[in-house]
């Protein structure tokens, strides 16, 4: 059994009176592909944001990759995000005025120093070698999502977070993106946590947890 990369104890997040995440105990071993399912508002995005260092819990303990996220300062969390985590959003969120390769280089720039050759290679790896100089507006949804993947993995994160990465994609693109993620995971051996409400997408993972109203209600292991 691999080491535990994420460990939560009584993890809680509430916004005012609304409790988005009820005390949650969760362990994710290194290298696992975990799918998180639930209706909208079930707390699955909240969980992902907490694990990715984008948000702070209200209560409980949260250790990711040996770091206590509660103890980190704002800039500490930023460092954690750039060195440890790669995030793929449903809405892509690329910078509209930068080209594909520049969007990837931006992640390199915040991490350390930009390296154009490496950024190109990363885009070629996701099959966008011919779209390097295009701005996001000129790319299709699937292509944009692949730029996001290139950006997410450019800094060799230990943890890849996907917030409904295929939510806006048609079937064909979804399968392409999922295939790509699977391939990359095989090479880079990062841990994946993917939030989705699509049963088929969830099935790509090793394990699926179901959240409802901030409570973990069910857990099922896939057999690969």
């Amino acid at each position: 059994m691999a080491e535990t990369i994420i460990e939560t104890n009584g993890l809680t997040r509430s916004y005012g009176d609304i409790c988005a995440l009820k005390p949650l105990d969760l362990q994710v071993p290194e290298g696992e592909w975990l799918s998180v399912m639930g209706h909208s508002g079930s707390g699955k995005s909240t969980l992902m944001n907490l694990v990715g260092g984008l948000d702070r819990p209200s209560d409980g303990s949260l250790r990711v990759g040996g770091e206590d996220l509660l103890a980190l300062s704002e800039d500490g969390l930023a460092r954690f995000r750039r060195e440890f985590v790669g995030i793929i959003f449903q809405q892509h969120h690329l910078i509209p005025y930068l080209t594909a390769v520049e969007n990837v280089m931006m992640a390199q720039y915040f991490h350390s120093v930009p390296d154009e050759a490496e950024a190109r290679t990363a885009l070629e790896r996701v099959g966008l070698g011919h779209r390097l100089k295009n701005r996001p507006g000129e790319l299709s949804g699937g292509e944009q999502q692949r730029v996001c993947i290139a950006r997410a993995i450019i800094n060799s994160p230990k943890l890849l977070l996907g917030d409904e990465p295929t939510g806006n994609l048609d079937n064909k693109s979804t399968i392409m993106v999922m295939e790509l993620l699977k391939e990359l995971r095989a090479e880079e051996r990062f841990t994946v946590i993917m939030v989705t409400h699509n049963q088929e997408v969830a099935a790509w993972g090793d394990r699926t947890i179901y959240l409802d109203d901030g409570v973990l209600v069910r857990e099922e292991r896939m057999n690969s």
């Binding site: 704002e74 930023a78 750039r82 910078i95 931006m106 992640a107 915040f110 991490h111 950006r151």
Partner: peptide
């Protein structure tokens, strides 16, 4: 706003 938020999400600290 979204742009700044994205930069932060990718890991930019306050200085950057």
């Amino acid at each position: 706003g979204p742009e700044i938020a994205l930069m932060k999400a990718v890991g930019a600290d306050r200085f950057q």
